[in-house]
């Protein structure tokens, strides 16, 4: 499923980054192939979100290079190829007067030139994304009226409305209850398997990663492990980082 003839979607080489005197990333290198489903894990402050922001072009890399679809992220123009789901909405206003449909439509603007206008044909894309994420029935509801799980699905719909090739999700399940979390992971798997969407999922939920992702990238300012779960489960020194019980739990579920 991970094979590709067109080269890697994402290539990170010798990436380093500092917040003032604090080192956030050191010599991080990895590639992502089309169809990969990568679980990006690591302790708090390990540089997961920093890597994501550099990949998305929100921050410049300190040292090293990042190539997104063969282009530097700061110069990358085909933004519709990327879908992004943030950890949480920055400065989210629960009284923001926007409907589900309006918010999902926001994802369309990465494809549009000035002046950015929503055209008749766009409605189909919006409806399709809302149907896939199960929010079509609440399309006229205000975002503030929804539960955390429903809001998350709306943001997923916004992220996939352009049918992106790469979907990046930063701890998307922190606000979800177990049932909503399971449904959410099922949705991601569906996108990965049936739509061949490449997924990078930042999470602390090791069990779900073991169950759904094809690769594990363990980051702690540098790469501790990057590879398939088969290799992860065979790796003896992983127990040192995760604990024997956790490693067993993840590998067991994955199998």
């Amino acid at each position: 499923m991970n094979a590709s003839n067109t080269g890697p979607i994402l290539s990170v080489a010798n990436l380093c980054f500092r917040y003032g005197p604090l080192e956030a990333l050191c010599e991080v290198s990895f590639t992502v192939e089309k169809g990969d489903y990568i679980g990006l894990v690591g302790p708090n402050g390990s540089g997961k979100t920093t890597v994501i922001k550099i990949i998305l072009g929100l921050m410049p890399p300190g040292n090293g290079t990042v190539s997104l679809f063969g282009t530097d992220p700061s110069a990358f123009e085909e933004r519709h190829k990327i879908g992004y789901l943030p950890q949480k909405l920055t400065n989210f206003n629960p009284y923001f007067p926007a409907t589900v449909k309006e918010i999902v439509s926001l994802g369309l603007f990465s494809k549009k030139k000035f002046p950015k206008r929503i055209l008749k044909g766009d409605a189909e894309l919006v409806d399709e994304a809302m149907t896939l994420t199960g929010v079509i029935d609440i399309k006229d509801a205000l975002i503030g009226e929804l539960s955390g799980g429903q809001q998350q699905r709306v943001l997923v719909a916004r992220a996939i409305v352009n049918k992106p090739e790469l979907l990046i999700l930063d701890e998307p399940t922190t606000a979800l209850d177990p049932e909503a979390r399971e449904n959410f992971f099922q949705l991601l798997r569906e996108l990965n398997l049936s739509k061949n969407v490449t997924i990078i999922l930042v999470t602390h939920d090791m069990a779900s990663i073991g169950k759904y992702a094809s690769k594990l990238l363990y980051l702690d300012k540098k790469i501790i492990f990057y590879g398939s779960f088969e290799n992860f489960c065979l790796s003896e020194n992983m127990a040192h980082y995760f604990g024997e019980f956790a490693q067993h739990l993840i590998c067991h579920r994955h199998d």
Binding site: E77, P86, L89, T90, A98, L106, G107, F109, P115, R117
Partner: peptide
């Protein structure tokens, strides 16, 4: 710039990612 204003007002980070 109506839609740009709508997008940046709702979620500035996402607006940046959409270019």
């Amino acid at each position: 710039f109506y839609n740009e204003y709508f997008s940046t007002t709702f979620d500035e980070e996402f607006a940046r990612i959409t270019g």
